[in-house]
């Protein structure tokens, strides 16, 4: 935590004070200039780089939301089936899912690179959405399966007795009481996407098409940008995921542990 606090302190400091010795834990002068720089409110020497912050945050947001939506619709339904039904091929397909969860995403990227090139999907947000589903979807199915297992099966059984079909029992009866699980799965998916770096760095290289982490990493690898400015962009970029986790923590803990504790 102290580390994060220091990042914040840095982000409101002047570079020259960071380099000063003896060292100050509290900066002698405080400034919001670093934030103004990355938000494009004041001119500075690397404003072209910093100006990409907001556009890339927007891209991150779009990709994160779309992937989350896809995951919740498709993944939740599958998770429900795995929790409730016995069916041929269940064990096998579950094992396959487990395997994909353990897969290094990076091994898929050369294939994405070539296929997306053929399809014209490189440098598009659609491409990223597709690539991100590869590592989020197995996770979501798994988490949701575990979550539905914590909901008493009697609930759907009584719905079936009341004349619902399987889908209605799921859609009208089980889903409405599954808020915490959905929030957990959704927040988790969104967080994975928001923070993802390697895939976006490789697939979306055209300026303006990539997400936030590559832009921040680019500023870091970039000469002539003060560390305090980079710290400001890092802090700003971290905020959404941190807030998401702080706000939905209760549900995330419930949903994630419901899944994991059972194995």
């Amino acid at each position: 935590m102290a580390a994060l606090a220091w990042l914040f302190v840095t982000s409101i400091s002047y570079q020259k004070n960071l380099l000063a010795r003896p060292f100050h834990l509290l900066p002698p002068d405080v400034t919001l200039d670093n934030y103004r720089m990355i938000l494009g409110l004041v001119r500075f020497h690397a404003e072209g780089q910093a100006a990409r912050m907001l556009a890339s945050m927007w891209n991150s947001l779009v990709v994160g939301l779309v992937v989350t939506a896809v995951n919740l619709v498709v993944g939740t339904t599958a998770g429900y089936a795995y929790a409730r039904f016995r069916f041929a091929g269940k064990t096998l397909s579950l094992f396959a899912l487990l395997f994909t969860r353990m897969l290094p995403t990076i091994v898929l990227v050369p294939a994405f690179f070539l296929v997306f090139r053929a399809l014209g999907l490189q440098n598009t947000l659609t491409g990223l959405v597709i690539a991100y589903c590869s590592f989020t979807l197995p996770f979501t199915v798994w988490i949701m399966k575990a979550y539905f297992e914590t909901i008493p099966g009697d609930l759907d059984k009584s719905a079936l007795v009341d004349g619902c079909n399987r889908f209605q029992a799921y859609w009208l009866v089980v889903l409405p009481v599954s808020g915490p699980g959905l929030v957990a799965g959704g927040a988790f998916t969104f967080m994975l996407c928001w923070n993802e770096f390697v895939v976006a760095q490789i697939l979306n290289t055209r300026p303006g098409t990539t997400t936030l982490p590559p832009v921040i990493a680019g500023m870091n690898g970039q000469i002539n940008i003060d560390y305090s400015v980079i710290a400001a962009s890092g802090f700003l970029g971290a905020l959404p995921a941190v807030i998401l986790v702080l706000v939905f923590q209760k549900y995330m803990v419930q949903g994630l542990t419901a899944g994991s504790v059972k194995g």
Partner: peptide, 12 residues
């Protein structure tokens, strides 16, 4: 700490 992008973790 877990919710931060590892890019930010590195910077920090």
């Amino acid at each position: 700490p877990w919710s931060l992008s590892r890019i930010v973790v590195g910077l920090l």
